[in-house]
Design a protein around this nucleic acid. Sequence first.
DNA 1: AATAATTGGGCAATCGATTGCGTAATAAAA
DNA 2: TTTTATTACGCAATCGATTGCCCAATTATT
Lengths: 342, 342
Amino acid sequence: MKRQKRTTIYDIAQRLNIAASSVSRALSNSNKVNAATKALVLKTAAEMNYQQNAMAANLRKGNNPTIGVVVPRINQGFFSNVIAGLEEITYKKGYNLIICQSNELHAREVDCVNALINQHVSCIVISIAAETGSYDHLQQVLDRQIRLIQFDRVVEELDTFKVINDNERASYEAVTHLISQGYKRIALLEGPQHLDIFRQRKDGYITALQKHGFPILQELMIENAWTKELGAEGTAQLLELPEPPDAIFASTSDFSALGVLEAATAKGITVPESLGICGYSNEPFTEITSPSITTIDQYSMSMGKTIANLYFQEMEVFDLNIEPKIVSIKPKLIIRKSTQKI
Amino acid sequence: MKRQKRTTIYDIAQRLNIAASSVSRALSNSNKVNAATKALVLKTAAEMNYQQNAMAANLRKGNNPTIGVVVPRINQGFFSNVIAGLEEITYKKGYNLIICQSNELHAREVDCVNALINQHVSCIVISIAAETGSYDHLQQVLDRQIRLIQFDRVVEELDTFKVINDNERASYEAVTHLISQGYKRIALLEGPQHLDIFRQRKDGYITALQKHGFPILQELMIENAWTKELGAEGTAQLLELPEPPDAIFASTSDFSALGVLEAATAKGITVPESLGICGYSNEPFTEITSPSITTIDQYSMSMGKTIANLYFQEMEVFDLNIEPKIVSIKPKLIIRKSTQKI
DNA sequence: AATAATTGGGCAATCGATTGCGTAATAAAA
DNA sequence: TTTTATTACGCAATCGATTGCCCAATTATT
C-alpha cells in the first residue's frame, strides 16, 4: 500500500476550477480575493482535509518561523524551565521550537548548531557547553545573518544579544548575607573558571569578603566542585583544615550544596549552627531538605520568556544592524534555614 | 543593509562550471560522479561556506527527518527526561526534534498537533493532556499516514504504537510492599480517572488489597489529589476519619506524597512508624526528604530511548500496515525509609 | 457616453535541492 | 576496428506554496 498523496492547493484549485494562486490568497486571507471565493475555498479546504505544507511555504517565503535551542542538558531544572518559558511565548507567535542538547560536548554543540543552520531557523538560542572549544560555530551563525541569543553561559567576547543573570551581584549578596549572620570563615565551591558565570560568582564572593574586611584565603576556595559528589569531597577536604570554615557557599549548584549538607551531617556537624550552607539555582528540593537550603533563584522560566520577547520585540522585524543588547536579570537570594544562625 | 544571499548549489555549480545536479550528487556522495569532481565540489563548498537548505531538500524528497513531541509540560522531571532520552537517539540518526507543550489543555494540544502536521514531521510522539477532549486530532494524524507513538498517558481505544509503564503492576507491588510492612489500613490518593494511567494504578491498589484479603473502603480513596497541596488536603481529610489510615499511597505523584509527608509531620504523626507513605515517579527530591520517600521509578530517560528505537526499528522503513505494538516497561519500586516500619 | 479607477483573479517565475532520463566520452568486449 | 557497456555529467521536471505582473470585468468619475 503506498502513501496516499496529501491534498495541496492545486487539488483545491482544480476542484473549484480556479487558479492555485487564488486558493493561496484565500487561505492567507489576502484582500485580493472576493469574499465569496474566500469562503468557498475555506470550506472546500476543510472538506478536503487540507493542511498547508510548511516546508514549501517557508522555502518560498525564505524564512522559517522556528527558533532553535541548544542547551547542555534538556532535563536539568534550570534549562527545562527556560525552554518552557520560551515555548510559552513562541507558541503564541506561531513559532516552532527545535531543541538540541550538547551534553556539555563541544563537538556535539557544533553539530547541533549546523543542523539548525541547515533548517534555516530564524534564531538560535544557546547556552554553551562546559567543554572548552572554539567559537567558530557561533561566528558562523552570525556570518549567516541568523539571529543569535546567548543565555546564562555566554561567550563574552562574541558580540551578540545576551540574557544573563547578574551572577556577581547574586553571589555578593549571598556572601554578604552569610557575613551578616555572623559567619567568619566562608569557603567557596567554585565551578570551571573558563565559564563566565562561575568566574563572576567567584568575583562576587571575593568582592563581598573584601568589602567587609575579610581575608581572601586560597585554601578556602575549592576548584571544580559542581556535582553532589564533588561537593561532598570538597567539604570533607575543607573540614580537615586546621582552621575549617564555618560556612560554605556552593556557588556551582544546589546539587553540590546538597553534597555539602550530607557530608556535614554525616560528620555530625550541625547546620546552620556550626556550618552555614548556601547553594545556587533554587532547585525544588532545596525547600525540603532538612534544614532547608538557602539558595539563589534565577527566575529560569521568566528568563525563557525574556529571551523570546527579546527576539520578537527587537530582532524579528528590525534590520540586522541593531546594537546587541545585554539583559541582566537580578537573581533573588532565598534565605532558608541552612544559613539562619541568628 | 539587506540580507546577503546564502550560497546554494547553483553558486557552486557556476563557480566550477558544472551542473547543479552534479553538485548535488557530489554532496550526497552519489556514485554517479567522478571522485575528482566530488573532491573538488566538497572543497569549493567548504570554501564558499555552503550549508544545505534543509527545507528545499526535504520538500523535494517529500519527507522531513523530524520527530514532533507533544507533552503536557516540558519542565516536569518525567517529561524532560523522556525528551532527553528521545534526543539522545534521534540526534545520532540525524533527526530533529520539535517540542511543544500542551499545558494540559486540549485546545492547545490540538494546535500543536496541527502545527506538526504542517511541518510534515515523520512521527509524532505524544502524552495527552489531562483535560478531556475528543481524539479527532490524533485520528487526523493517523489518517495522514504520519506515524504516531503515544506514551505514558495514552488513549487506549486508538490503535497506535504505545510505550507505557505497567502502572497496575507497579501499583500492585507498592501496595503489597506496604502490606508486607504490616500496614493495615492503606489509603489511596488517586488521579483523574479518565486517564488510563490513574485508573490502572487504582486497579493495582484494589487487586493487591483483595489478594491479601483486605476490604476495599471507599472512604480511604481520595479523588483527584495530584498536587502537593491536594495531597496535603487529602491527608488532613483522611486523618480526621474515625478510623484513620496507617499508610497512604500517593499514586498520583511524588509531589502529592510530599504533601502527605508535610501534612503528617505538621500533625506530629511519625513516618514511617504511624504512617507509611509511598509516592510515584521517583522525583529527585524523594531521596532527600526526611524520611526519604518510597516511590516508583519509571525509567523515564530510557522510556524516551525506547520510543525512539521503536520508531527507527519498526516504523521508519517499513510500510504503514504494520501491527501497532505496545511496549510496556515495568517500573521499579524503590523502597526507602517512609515505608520501612519493620 | 466615454474614460479612469478599482477589483478579482490568472499566468508563470521562484525558493533550493533532488532525480529520472538522455547522451557524449571513454573503456571493454567481440 | 566495430560494437557494446560503463561512466560521468547535463537537462529539465518536480516538490507545494507564494507573489509580481498583467488583464478582464466591473464600478466610479467627469
